[in-house]
Computed example of a mutant assay.
Amino acid sequence: MGFIDGQNLFMQAKRLFGYRTPNFDPLALHHEMCEVAGFLPGAVRFYTGLPSPRRQPRWHAFWCNKAEAMERDGVEVTTRPLRYRRRRIFDEDGDVEFMVQAEEKGIDIRIALDLVRMARRDELTAAIIYSQDQDLNEVVSEIEAISEIKGIEIKLACAFPTSPQSDFDRGVMNTQWLRFDKQLYDRCIDDRDYFPRT
């Protein structure tokens, strides 16, 4: 099964590959990575923060439209509203400025809970986590404990983009790391336009 942190994957692909929109097809990417890992591709779960329709109406519409399309394709989608916090920063002259920053809350916890729940119900034999969020490190030891109690092996891998410019080239600890480059990513691009028509 694939567990995709949509915002985490988007931000890494944007930083390393230069894409300004989340233009990946989660099913195509999961199939590619399963081939790399030697897994049979199973179901895909997609998790993302959802921008506010008032603060970011264009991006809200984008993610709603993309989520609907993914669900039609058989992907199980979980969303959580983004939270907006006012942050104090210092400019280059040392003066205080304020900015509003969107934050994603609860996505890593939801992924961890789903992994543990499915492992306990014997619904999981192998999983690829598409995130470099180090908050997910702890779920790995929980899955290992469940595996030991049940006397079964649950294989865990972590897939993430990489490039020569990568300054953080590590996945979730104690998983098999599956790095993918721009060439592989480009084979998994979704060309559909999910932005609202103006």
Rank of each mutant, 00 (worst) to 15 (best):
R187A: 07
F24K: 00
K182Q: 15
R187I: 01
D25R: 06
A126Y: 03
E35R: 15
F180V: 08
A37P: 05
Q12L: 10
E123Y: 00
T48F: 09
K105P: 09
F180L: 07
D186T: 05
D191K: 15
Q176M: 14
G74K: 03
D191C: 04
V44Q: 03
P81S: 08
G151S: 04
R179E: 13
C158E: 04
A112V: 01
R72G: 05
A159R: 06
R15Q: 12
D93N: 14
A112N: 04
I149W: 01
D193N: 15
I146C: 09
G74S: 07
R197Q: 13
K155M: 04
Q101A: 03
K182I: 11
Y130R: 05
R187F: 02
G106M: 10
D108L: 04
R197P: 02
I154W: 07
Y194D: 10
F39C: 01
P22L: 12
R120H: 10
A127I: 00
P196C: 07
V96D: 08
R120E: 13
D190H: 11
E97Y: 01
E76P: 00
D169P: 07
L82C: 06
G42K: 11
H60V: 02
E123Q: 15
E148D: 10
T198E: 14
G42C: 02
R197V: 12
E92F: 04
T198N: 11
L115D: 06
L184E: 07
I109M: 12
I152H: 11
A145V: 02
F46C: 05
L50G: 06
F3D: 08
Q12P: 00
F46S: 04
F39M: 08
I152R: 15
L124A: 10
L184C: 08
P41C: 08
A67S: 15
Q7T: 01
H30F: 10
M33T: 05
S131C: 07
G74V: 04
A43N: 08
I149T: 13
E32P: 01
D5V: 04
M11P: 00
T48Y: 03
L50W: 01
C158H: 04
G38T: 10
F168T: 11
A13Y: 00
S166C: 11
R179G: 14
R83H: 13
T162Y: 09
D181V: 06
T21S: 12
F46M: 06
D95R: 14
R54F: 06
F90P: 00
I4K: 03
N174C: 02
G106F: 05
Y185I: 06
E35P: 00
L82D: 09
I111A: 03
G42R: 11
N174M: 08
W177I: 01
S52V: 05
W59P: 01
Q176R: 15
R55C: 00
I107P: 09
A127D: 08
L184T: 15
L82V: 06
S147I: 02
V96I: 15
E104G: 11
T78K: 12
R83N: 08
E32Y: 03
R187V: 04
D169Q: 12
A28Q: 11
S163G: 12
G106V: 07
Q176K: 14
R121C: 03
T48E: 07
W59V: 00
Q183H: 13
S52D: 13
E71R: 15
S166Y: 09
L40S: 12
